[in-house]
Computed example of a mutant assay.
Amino acid sequence: MSITVDKVIKREPLVINENATIKEAINIMSRENVGLLVIVNNAGKPIGVISERDIIRALARGKDLNAKVTEVGTVGKLVTISPRDSIYKAALLMNDHKIRHLVVMDNDKLRGVISIRDIISEERVVSRLAELAEAKPSEAEAVGAD
C-alpha cells in the first residue's frame, strides 16, 4: 500500500504576493503557525517560496524588513511533487534537495505544501517508511515507484 501526498496535506496552501515584504511574510507565518509561504505572481502562479530560514539568513545579512519576499526567498527553483506521488518519493525529494517542504502541484494548480513534519507526524507513514528502509534497495525502489 502506497500512501500518497494528498493524504498528508494538512491545510490549504498559504501564499504571499511577489510584491509583499518580509514583514508581511513574518506576520502571516506567525499568525498561521507555518514555516513556509508560497510566493505567487500577480496572476496567482507559484514562482517560489519563502521560509523561516530564508528570513533569518536575510536578517543576519542586514536585510531590511521592508525588502520584497522575492529578494530573500527561493524564486524560480521550485521543487514540486504531485498529490498522487508517494510519501516515500516526497521524503526522497526532501532529502535530495536538503529541504523541509515541498510544493504540491496538480498540473498547473497549487494544491498545498507538505512538510517533513507532516510526513513524520503520521504514524502509518513512519511505519511504512521504516518498512521501506528495512527492505532491500531494489525492493524499496519498486515499492516507492509510482
Score class of each variant (00 low, 15 high):
residue 144 G to A: 13
residue 124 R to H: 14
residue 48 G to I: 12
residue 21 T to L: 02
residue 29 M to C: 07
residue 83 P to Y: 01
residue 27 N to P: 00
residue 89 K to E: 08
residue 69 V to G: 02
residue 122 E to Y: 06
residue 134 E to A: 15
residue 10 K to I: 10
residue 122 E to V: 08
residue 142 A to C: 02
residue 133 A to D: 13
residue 124 R to C: 09
residue 20 A to G: 05
residue 17 N to E: 15
residue 134 E to R: 13
residue 125 V to S: 14
residue 9 I to S: 04
residue 97 H to D: 01
residue 39 I to T: 02
residue 3 I to L: 14
residue 143 V to Y: 10
residue 72 V to R: 00
residue 107 N to D: 15
residue 36 L to D: 02
residue 87 I to G: 04
residue 33 N to L: 08
residue 23 K to S: 13
residue 109 K to N: 09
residue 9 I to G: 04
residue 30 S to Y: 12
residue 2 S to Y: 06
residue 57 R to P: 00
residue 56 I to M: 12
residue 45 K to Y: 14
residue 112 G to T: 08
residue 77 K to P: 08
residue 95 N to T: 09
residue 60 A to K: 06
residue 12 E to Q: 06
residue 83 P to I: 09
residue 93 L to H: 00
residue 80 T to F: 00
residue 49 V to Q: 04
residue 67 A to W: 00
residue 65 L to E: 10
residue 31 R to K: 15
residue 128 R to C: 01
residue 44 G to W: 04
residue 99 I to V: 14
residue 31 R to D: 14
residue 99 I to N: 08
residue 74 T to P: 01
residue 27 N to W: 03
residue 56 I to V: 15
residue 84 R to M: 05
residue 26 I to T: 10
residue 114 I to W: 08
residue 135 A to N: 05
residue 131 E to D: 12
residue 129 L to Q: 06
residue 60 A to T: 11
residue 48 G to C: 13
residue 119 I to N: 10
residue 24 E to S: 07
residue 28 I to A: 03
residue 134 E to C: 03
residue 8 V to R: 05
residue 28 I to Q: 03
residue 25 A to M: 05
residue 6 D to Y: 15
residue 132 L to H: 12
residue 87 I to Q: 08
residue 5 V to M: 14
residue 130 A to S: 14
residue 93 L to W: 00
residue 12 E to A: 09
residue 69 V to C: 09
residue 40 V to D: 11
residue 60 A to V: 12
residue 142 A to N: 05
residue 101 H to S: 04
residue 109 K to F: 04
residue 140 A to L: 08
residue 29 M to W: 01
residue 75 V to N: 02
residue 97 H to P: 05
residue 34 V to E: 00
residue 92 L to H: 00
residue 124 R to W: 12
residue 31 R to E: 15
residue 136 K to C: 04
residue 98 K to N: 13
